[in-house]
């Protein structure tokens, strides 16, 4: 870990000013990913701007829209256990609790969770080629060990996957990211536009501009709370990143699916909205056969790598299962 300057700030304006002023400056919130990356010499900021004292921890309903606003600096565990989140967005609660450990969730913030970097081993190992870490050095995983890697939307430049669980639920829930710009003004980013595919710029994980700070994440009102489930398959039963995960939510009109939301984790450089599956399900009845057909439809576009072909079959099964569990109060 390089030496760096540590700066403590007390409000968001000071924070964005400090980070905009210095290209090698970064915000420090929960630190659960950034400190790790700094120990690995993958992240080498010359300045850390400590934003932990900023007043961005509220979880409250926005009067005009009815949306639930969750503060960027609210801890993951507080968010998961907030009574309104549990009651109205149980999918988010489950997704947060499927990730990391109790200790890490007590530290990690919501904004930081969105900005987690990939856990690709080639990204983490500075002795290895990685375009995300060092553009132009090549993708180590493309022809290396790529069991954990992408099956959707990857490029020759990068086959890494985005590791968050929380964000998969946020993708399914069409969350909105509130951002404070470097000039102090606010802008919003639709969740689908927040994270990006690697294309030719894998070093860029998301659409934040330098110096921009997430201040809150808004959850629109929905009718999914009775019919949602977050399902995660991993190499051990807990405290591991997903091989594949699915956030599934259904809005029913009697036996008919009014609206379906399916998002996948562990399959792409961003939370993968399974739009083919969603489209297939709209207006259909909630049957195992339809869930399976929706899953098949989604996975047709998958392009697996050498070691992750299993993710295609697993993807089909986990989508169908997650939808079924969403219908059955979590039971399979």
């Amino acid at each position: 870990m390089r030496p760096f300057q540590y700066t403590k700030v007390n409000d968001a304006s000071a924070a964005v000013q400090a980070v905009s002023a210095n290209a090698n400056s970064q915000f420090l919130a929960g630190g659960t990913n950034l400190i790790d990356l700094m120990k690995e010499d993958v992240a080498c900021p010359v300045e850390l701007v400590d934003i932990t004292r900023l007043n961005l921890t509220q979880i409250s309903t926005v009067a005009e829209s009815g949306n639930l606003s969750i503060g960027a600096l609210a801890k993951n565990s507080d968010t998961a256990n907030h009574p309104v989140v549990r009651q109205n967005y149980p999918l988010l609660t489950q997704a947060i609790l499927a990730g990391a450990s109790g200790q890490i969730r007590n530290m990690a913030t919501n904004g930081g969770n969105l900005n987690q970097r990939t856990r690709c081993s080639y990204f983490y190992d500075t002795a290895m080629p990685c375009n995300k870490r060092e553009l132009g050095s090549g993708c180590g995983a493309l022809e290396g060990i790529n069991r954990y890697h992408a099956i959707f939307g990857w490029s020759e430049q990068c086959v890494a996957v985005y590791p968050s669980d929380m964000a998969i639920a946020l993708a399914a829930l069409d969350a909105i990211v509130q951002v404070q710009r470097a000039d102090g003004t606010q802008r919003t980013i639709a969740f689908a536009d927040y994270h990006r595919l690697p294309e030719n710029n894998p070093e860029k994980d998301n659409s934040l501009n330098p110096g921009e700070l997430i201040t809150a994440i808004e959850l629109p009102t929905n009718n999914f709370a009775d019919r949602s489930y977050y399902l995660k398959v991993r190499d051990r039963s807990s405290y591991a990143f997903a091989l594949v995960s699915v956030a599934a939510a259904l809005e029913m009109d009697g036996n008919q699916i009014q609206q379906a939301r399916v998002a996948m984790g562990g399959v792409a450089h961003k939370p993968w909205r399974a739009l083919e599956a969603e489209e297939f399900l709209t207006g259909k009845t909630a049957t195992a056969a339809n869930f399976q057909a929706a899953a098949e439809a989604e996975m047709r576009q998958a392009k697996p790598l050498e070691h992750n072909q299993f993710k295609v079959e697993l993807g089909k099964r986990i989508i169908a299962r997650a939808l079924m569990q969403a219908m059955n109060d979590g039971r399979a």
């Binding site: 998961a80 256990n81 549990r86 009651q87 149980p90 609660t93 109790g102």
Partner: peptide, 21 residues
């Protein structure tokens, strides 16, 4: 963990996360 349970916090294996804390 016991404090968290006392506070009504749920986990990934909790069947009903929508219950009143």
């Amino acid at each position: 963990v016991l404090n968290e349970a006392h506070n009504g916090e749920v986990s990934y294996v909790t069947t009903d996360v929508r219950q009143e804390p």
